[in-house]
Structures are given as structure tokens and as C-alpha cells.
């Protein structure tokens, strides 16, 4: 099918875009990479009255190195970010997770900000954003505000961004420790499909290989990505399959995953547990490897 009619605005700078949003609010849809919006418009499932095409706003298309974070403008393409962080071990989790987004042909166009603002609970970028403790910079005519990822997602396809606001940039926090290990695991029906369940993990361990920090995020298991609590119970312990397994059993019991064609809630809990286990194991292994590397230096 073909899109319905709309009024089309193409602002050249941020203030122009913000005043349009201020004027039209809920009637307007922002067109960034279009990889989620255009299919919906093609099926006429979305028939926005107004399209605000932000592709002409150069100032939100940059990646900037900041002291504590990487500032990624809302218009930065997923592929561009993946390439930017490609060789830097610090951003390994981002790289691992982003490899699962759609296909290169859609990552070439899809934007980092667009995916996060779209807030599909089974998409990779929202999960990464949450797990990596990112921060959203939201602009409006009334000024900018910053929202930590943990407060950003509200429901399926819903975030704290108000109709008059625009996601200006996403700040990716640099990992505090050089020995942090990263893991990402996803179950999808086919390569490139949205996750039935996905897990992202950041693990830090001490010289005795005891957990000192665990950050675990789960995707596809609820209306928003989920940051798992209670990892601190494992601090001071070393890896054991049983230890992790029983913790994850408790964790997944507490989830309220959706029912769809691919998986019912029970099965999805199972998958989430398996994905979490696998991602934690990779993260632990990678942290371990970094310690080994350090001993050999």
C-alpha cells in the first residue's frame, strides 16, 4: 500500500523543528530514518496529519566525544555509530547488540535516536540504552532536559518525550572500569527479526574472579526493556551455573512477558532466562579475559 496524504515540513535547524512541534504537537510525526514509521504509513496503520522531516538538521547528526559519555545526535545512523565504535573495546556491548538490529540495509538509514524514541520493547537499542545507563537529551522550545534511561521508557512505544519535544541526542556513558566484561544474547526466529527475548550484560569482577558489579538488561519480556535488580546478591561470589541459574529463575518468575505468535509468557520467561544466562556468561568470560590480559602484561 501507499502512504496517505500529509502536510510535509522540512526544518533546516533545531529551533524550526521545535517550533513546529510546539505548534502541532500530537498531530505531527517526526521522520528521521523512517525504518519504523514508513512501513506503518505504507500500510496506512499510521496516517499522521503532519510529517516533520528532521533529516535536514545537520546539528543533530554528529557524534561527539564528551568527558563521561559519547554524545550521539538523534539523526546519527545506526550503521555510523556501529562503525564509529567498531574498534573500541569500551563500546563492545554496543557493537554486539547493534549487530542484531534488522539488516545492514536498514541500519544504513535507521537512526539511533529514532529507534530509542520508538521504544519497541523487543528492539535492541532501547535495551542497550537502558543496560548501559544512558541518558536522553530532550529538547523543546522551553529548553533542554536530560532523562536517565531508567526513567525514559514508559510503555510499549511510549517514552517520557512529550508531543512538543524532540529527542536531540543520546548520551552513552563510558564504562567506569577497564576490566568490565560485556555480553549480549538474543533469541529471534530468524536473523534480523525482533527479539523473542534478548539480554545485555555488563559484569565486573575482581582479581579473584568474584563479581563486583552486575548490570543485566532484558528485552522482549514486557512493555519496556527491563533492568534486572538484585544482581548485588552475587557480589563476592564466583561464577557457577547453578548460582546464576537459580538467581535467574527468581528473576524470570517476576517478569510479566507478553503473549504473541512466537512465544507465550511461560516460554518467553524461559528464553529470557536462557538469554540472560548466556549473556552473563559471555560477559564474565570477557571480564575474566581482561584480567588475564592484565596479568600477562
Amino acid at each position: 500500500m501507499k502512504p496517505a496524504l500529509f502536510d510535509y515540513f522540512r526544518p533546516q535547524n533545531l529551533p524550526e523543528a521545535l517550533s513546529l512541534l510546539d505548534e502541532f504537537g500530537t498531530d505531527a510525526k517526526i521522520l528521521a530514518g523512517g525504518q519504523s514509521l514508513i512501513p506503518l504509513m505504507n500500510m496506512r496503520l499510521a496516517q499522521p496529519r503532519i510529517i516533520i522531516d528532521i533529516n535536514g538538521i545537520a546539528e543533530i547528526g554528529q557524534i561527539r566525544e564528551k568527558a563521561e559519555a559519547l554524545e550521539v545526535g538523534a539523526l546519527v545512523r545506526q550503521r555510523a555509530l556501529a562503525r564509529y565504535v567498531h574498534t573500541d573495546g569500551m563500546w563492545e556491548l554496543l557493537r554486539l547488540g547493534m549487530a542484531h538490529i534488522g539488516h545492514p540495509q536498514t541500519r544504513n538509514q535507521g537512526t539511533v535516536g529514532g529507534s530509542i524514541a520508538h521504544a519497541d520493547p523487543s528492539a535492541e537499542l532501547p535495551l542497550l540504552f537502558l543496560t548501559m545507563d544512558g541518558e536522553a537529551e530532550i529538547a523543546s522550545l522551553r529548553g533542554n532536559r536530560k532523562v536517565p534511561a531508567e526513567q525514559f521508557f514508559q510503555f510499549v512505544f511510549s517514552t517520557v518525550i512529550q508531543p512538543h519535544e524532540l529527542l536531540r541526542a543520546v548520551h552513552w556513558k563510558r564504562p567506569a572500569s577497564k576490566t568490565a566484561g560485556f555480553g549480549f544474547y538474543e533469541f529471534s526466529r530468524r536473523a534480523g527479526d525482533f527479539a523473542m527475548a534478548a539480554a545485555a550484560a555488563i559484569v565486573e569482577i575482581d582479581a579473584q574472579r568474584r563479581f563486583t558489579s552486575i548490570r543485566l538488561g532484558l528485552g522482549g519480556v514486557g512493555p519496556t526493556p527491563v533492568l534486572v535488580q538484585g544482581g548485588d546478591m552475587l557480589y563476592g561470589r564466583t561464577w557457577s551455573d547453578n548460582l546464576i541459574g537459580s538467581w535467574l529463575e527468581d528473576v524470570t518468575k517476576g517478569l510479566d512477558p507478553p503473549q504473541d505468535l512466537a512465544a507465550n509468557p511461560d516460554f518467553r520467561r524461559r528464553l529470557a532466562g536462557a538469554a540472560a544466562h548466556k549473556s552473563l556468561f559471555s560477559a564474565y568470560q570477557s571480564a575474566n579475559g581482561k584480567w588475564e590480559g592484565r596479568t600477562h602484561e
Binding site: F187, M196, A263, F267, L271
Partner: peptide
């Protein structure tokens, strides 16, 4: 033979 069916 979907994952869900196999699981069941």
C-alpha cells in the same frame, strides 16, 4: 516445528 512447539 517452532521453538515454542518444540519446547512444549
Amino acid at each position: 516445528l517452532t521453538p515454542q512447539m518444540v519446547f512444549h
